[in-house]
């Protein structure tokens, strides 16, 4: 009632707009950022492994190694940030009731990401991808969007959960 009165006055007088300013726009959530970031971490493990298997490493290889490690760290932080925002802002009681595993899954993702950052270990990072895929699957289910599994069409060619948005 009061709101609709103010809304009518607003249409006539146009009140000044004030923003609460969040880092991301309201209601825009997508776990794809986290999925891409963990794929990047896996790809970096492969690239570091290629460097390791080289007979000799010149200064450029050393510089490349340094860049790769730095990028792996950066993408690990992105994984944590993206998952934390969805968990902290989007996931609420209705989603938790439907998927009680969400708190533990999110915590496991945090721990697994730390491990994947600390080590250059493809298996650990693939394990992280599996958890993030499960998180993505739950996320899309809560939005009544069907998902499908497919191998990403670029290195490191790992299985990813995609939303089926055609329906």
């Amino acid at each position: 009632m009061v709101y609709s009165i103010f809304n009518k006055i607003h249409k006539l007088n146009n009140f000044q707009t004030v923003s609460a300013h969040c880092d991301i726009p309201c209601k825009i959530y997508d776990p794809m950022h986290a999925q891409i970031s963990v794929l990047t971490m896996i790809r970096i493990c492969d690239l570091i492994s290629e460097l390791e298997n080289k007979d000799s490493n010149d200064i450029n290889d050393k510089a490349q190694f340094s860049r790769l490690i730095s990028q792996k760290e950066e993408h690990g932080i992105k994984v944590k940030d993206e998952i934390r925002v969805i968990w902290g802002d989007y996931i609420k009681e209705p989603q938790l009731e439907k998927f009680p595993e969400l708190h533990k899954l999110t915590h496991d993702i945090m721990l697994n990401t730390s491990k994947a950052k600390q080590e250059v270990n493809k298996e650990i990072t693939i394990d992280l991808l599996k958890k993030i895929n499960r998180f993505a699957e739950i996320f899309w289910t809560t939005k009544n969007v069907k998902t499908y599994k497919a191998i990403c069409p670029y290195p490191p060619a790992q299985e990813l959960i995609y939303p089926d948005l055609k329906e």
């Binding site: 004030v18 609460a20 969040c22 925002v85």
Partner: peptide, 24 residues
Amino acid sequence: LIVKKLKYVDLNGDLWFEGENFSS
């Protein structure tokens, strides 16, 4: 123009604000 909660006033008299939620 933004709206935020006052967190504290520092020794210089400047104001420090914070948001209400995680993504602020």
